[in-house]
Design a protein around this nucleic acid. Structure first.
Lengths: 201, 201
DNA sequence: GCCTCATATGCACATTGACGCATATGCGCC
DNA sequence: GGCGCATATGCGTCAATGTGCATATGAGGC
């Protein structure tokens, strides 16, 4: 239950409501781990049932009552035990890569536009990381252990996005060079190798 | 159903049995997309039901009969239509990052050994990619569209692994420097900030 | 003789994730 | 007055994924 542990990790910073957690998973931690509010509320119920977190209800008028969740000592222990276990190296699981793997059986034009969209997307994220880095760590060093973790996180994110952006750029160049070599025209072509008879619809 | 499309992409190369696909997902494509044989057999049944692939049974003695799957024209069309849709940028989802995010609430020693294991793991994979690249693309260029896709795939994989390996190395250095600054000794310490009373078990 | 490995396929169950929908209300905009 | 937005929580369903177990047998090692 990695999402559960991610929530516990977030709650080490400060107590939060499900709503705040959902916002957190839409920015900072969410750059690495996506989760919508439904998933978070479901996970919070489970964590509460297991005694890892405690909800304190805050009565509000006009809005539904808040439930501010705090880590219990059991929750802290659970997080520490989880963190002591070796991590599992994830696989990349980017479906763009599947498209590239079957590059000769698909249309290149959509791939090209996809690569351009992705280039923009990863560049935006890269700039975002760099901006936060400059703001939070102007001299590039961390003062404490908590800061160190976040600095490392941001650095990894920045590097990752830059690498993927560079990749998209080079892939686009290679694709242009290749289609120029193969076909010599700019029309939308099915890059089949001629052995099969179907055309794109 | 991204796994289904990954299988279709694999079958564009050549017809395969579920067993062979499982082995493929344990090497080439499997570097990017993990799937065990149960997942693959289940997905194959679905693809067959939808008419995207066709199974030809090969009777064997001593072993269970083979089912060699071939892409149907419908399957090719489905793959091409899927590939024409924009890809969804995945999030990193590495639980090592969650550990780093809560670095001040967990024990650093396990994190350190984890980072060392991961460093070795990513270095191995990087070497593996570089080896395949040298063997398949000695001059660093692709001859056709199919080759281009695989070249790009391998290049991305190599870069990714090198980046993560470098990150692990630098994280280890930063962690050493930090623990030296904070504590001045080399014993196993809980990096709590002193506000909480619990120690590691 | 027994154990493990390679070949080859598959079911059942549990967890995780994605997506839509529901509820309740104050605030500002047009 | 109606519309969307922010706040705040949650149910229900289905697809995707992960884990364990089951079957069948020849080949080779201890």
């Amino acid at each position: 239950m990695a999402l559960g542990d991610a929530i516990l990790a977030c709650l080490t910073e400060r107590p939060m409501t499900g709503y705040e957690l959902a916002k957190t998973f839409d920015s900072s931690i969410g750059f690495f781990w996506k989760a919508d509010h439904q998933q978070i509320y479901r996970e919070l119920s489970k964590l509460r049932d297991r005694g890892f977190i405690q909800g304190r209800e805050v009565v509000q008028t006009g809005k539904p009552n808040k439930l501010i969740y705090t880590l219990t000592p059991e929750g802290r222990t659970a997080l520490r035990h989880w963190a002591a276990r070796p991590s599992t190296p994830p696989s990349i699981k980017d479906d763009l890569l599947i498209r590239l793997h079957a590059l000769d059986s698909v249309d290149i034009e959509p791939i090209r536009t996809d690569l351009m969209d992705r280039l923009e997307h990863h560049r935006d994220r890269h700039e975002n990381y760099e901006r936060i880095l400059k703001k939070r760590f102007p001299d590039g060093t961390a003062s404490g252990v908590l800061d160190l973790g976040n600095l490392l996180l941001l650095q990894l994110g920045a590097r990752h996005e830059r690498m993927v952006a560079d990749f998209c750029e080079e892939a686009l160049q290679a694709l242009s060079a290749m289609s120029g070599k193969d076909k010599g025209n700019g029309t939308v072509v099915s890059l089949g190798d001629g052995k099969r008879g179907e055309r794109q619809s």
